[in-house]
């Protein structure tokens, strides 16, 4: 089995001029293809920081990161953008779908930045069907419930068929019922062989994944 994510002694220190805030202090992590991993840890422990590095939104201060066995440290901004577009799907705690676009347009958004020639609407509609929102395709986000918005966000994360889904507290803003629905969705994705790294505070949620890792004092415990 290939490793989708390989972190080797990754450090992240925020430099605030006078003071330096070390957040990650030598993180080692491997995630295999098809794995569903939960990431837990107290607030401020660096979970989001780690997700941002894995998601190529941020660069580590030190250490190596291999995505799909490929070094990404030396990549330039455009290459990183393309890698995000092709390999990573984000699901955020606060949904982060664009208010001015309707459901299918939000789902199709990553395809705008893809070099692959696709049929955005068709793909978006299929994915909305998959997350059970086919009837809501032309609804704007403010016409959708929190759970529906998050499902739109999940569909969007899938639109470029990524090799890794990064979900930072995807159920954090949802009540337990709708949270469960979204988790069902993740379960389904996992069963289809999609690799998932998910941050959560909820051990019940973490239990559903294959493996739970804890971050403590800047390291994987």
């Amino acid at each position: 089995m290939t490793n989708v994510v390989t972190l080797d002694q990754v450090y992240k220190t925020y430099d605030l001029g006078e003071i330096k805030v070390p957040v990650l202090k030598g993180v080692d992590l491997k995630i295999k293809k098809g794995e569903w991993v939960s990431l837990m840890g107290p607030s401020g422990s660096g979970k989001t920081t780690l997700m941002n590095i894995v998601g190529l939104l941020d660069t580590p201060t030190d250490g190596n990161y291999l995505l799909n066995e490929e070094m990404v440290s030396a990549k330039n901004d455009d290459d990183l953008s393309n890698l995000r577009n092709n390999h990573i799907g984000f699901v955020f705690q606060t949904f982060n779908i664009l208010p001015q676009l309707n459901a299918w347009q939000n789902v199709a958004l990553p395809l705008n930045y893809s070099v692959r020639n696709q049929k955005p609407k068709k793909i978006a509609m299929e994915l909305l069907d998959k997350v059970g929102l086919k009837e809501r395709a032309t609804h704007k986000p403010n016409e959708l419930s929190g759970g529906e918005r998050q499902r739109v966000a999940v569909a969007r994360a899938l639109s470029n068929s990524p090799s890794l889904i990064l979900a930072d507290e995807p159920t954090g803003n949802l009540d337990s019922k709708t949270g469960k629905d979204v988790l069902e969705l993740f379960k389904q994705l996992h069963s289809e062989g999609i690799t998932i790294l998910m941050v959560t505070h909820d051990t019940q949620v973490a239990k559903r994944s294959q493996r739970t890792i804890n971050i403590l004092d800047g390291k994987i415990a």
Partner: peptide
């Protein structure tokens, strides 16, 4: 700003 961040996360390049 938030929208810019979202678009970048989804793969938009600086140029886009």
């Amino acid at each position: 700003t938030r929208e810019i961040g979202i678009r970048r996360a989804l793969g938009a390049r600086k140029k886009d």
